[in-house]
Design a protein around this nucleic acid. Structure first.
Lengths: 158, 158
DNA sequence: CCTTGACACTGAAGCCGCTACAGGGTTTCT
DNA sequence: AGAAACCCTGTAGCGGCTTCAGTGTCAAGG
């Protein structure tokens, strides 16, 4: 099968496949006489695996490690489980951060009395002040949160 | 005051200040004879505002809009509130996505019986299959989640 | 047989919000 | 006077792609 067919089979964009190849997640394939990449069912499996991992928000680095463990088929699965456990922790931390953020934003929003002028509004002045509440200060503290906004490429395309 | 002092006053890195200037969030300042940027108290306010917004994970685009509204001081604050409301929605959506993700990961992790071989483990095979549960399928569906992993620059520095 | 359109290829640049570095000049302190 | 600490510009890097420019290939229809 050619790259376009693989793309359809895995719900993945053609460019993304080539990108994964460059990054070493997919092996370099055989080529046709005319230099087209040729894939087999094993490639569908491997790419599906990668995409599922990405959907679980693992980094390409983590996925790389998983693929190596998978390829090596070691005796026990503890290294895989450790990786997954770590990832679960990442996600849990992000959720806590975002919850704290959400709380702060709601507080901020509530500081607007109604439809008065900006000067009376409280939201802008709230933004001018440090508005970290006592609530979750220890978590959010001084760091930036990041990651609320989705990268939109896939959505536009799909 | 010079750029380093502004940086200290706002807990912001010097390079970030110059970056904001390039991006148009901070105006181009006066310069000394020797071409050093010179800032006043108004700049501290403006940069603090920007940093607080960033701490609330707004994009520079959103902050730009807020700054314009702030500068223009319109009659009512509804446009500001709308922006903040939208942002709150973004955050809420991200939290839901991450919760669903977390659930899926826990399920995946539980599919490992114990310390058997990888073949029996279930985690890898789970990753090979689509493992979106019925639970939150509508939300996560086919899209990538992203943003679990923090960009670490600031932490290293601080 | 020729054209049109869909597909394939490479390489480079763009997105976000910075960070970091190279390679200079200036100021401040000892 | 010399060293450390600051300032400047410009460029490249991070992740995970996307997009674009420019070219080549292939199957179907007129």
């Amino acid at each position: 099968m050619k790259i376009g067919e693989l793309a359809k089979a895995t719900q993945c964009q053609v460019e993304t496949i080539r990108y994964y190849e460059r990054k070493g997640l997919l092996p370099e394939t055989n080529r046709t006489e005319r230099n087209y990449r040729v894939y087999g069912p094993g490639d569908v499996d491997r790419l599906s695996f990668i995409r599922h991992c990405r959907r679980l928000d693992m980094t390409l680095g983590e996925i790389s490690v998983l693929l190596q463990l998978k390829d090596a088929s070691p005796e026990d699965c503890s290294s895989i489980n450790n990786l997954v456990d770590d990832h679960i922790k990442h996600v849990a931390v992000r959720i806590q951060e975002l919850k704290s953020l959400h709380k702060q934003l709601i507080n901020l929003r509530n500081s607007c009395a109604g439809s008065g002028s900006v000067n009376e509004c409280g939201v802008l002045s709230g933004l001018s002040r440090a508005l970290v509440e006592e609530s979750n200060r220890s978590i959010l503290n001084d760091r930036l949160v990041q990651g609320t906004h989705q990268v939109s490429g896939r959505h536009k395309a799909a």
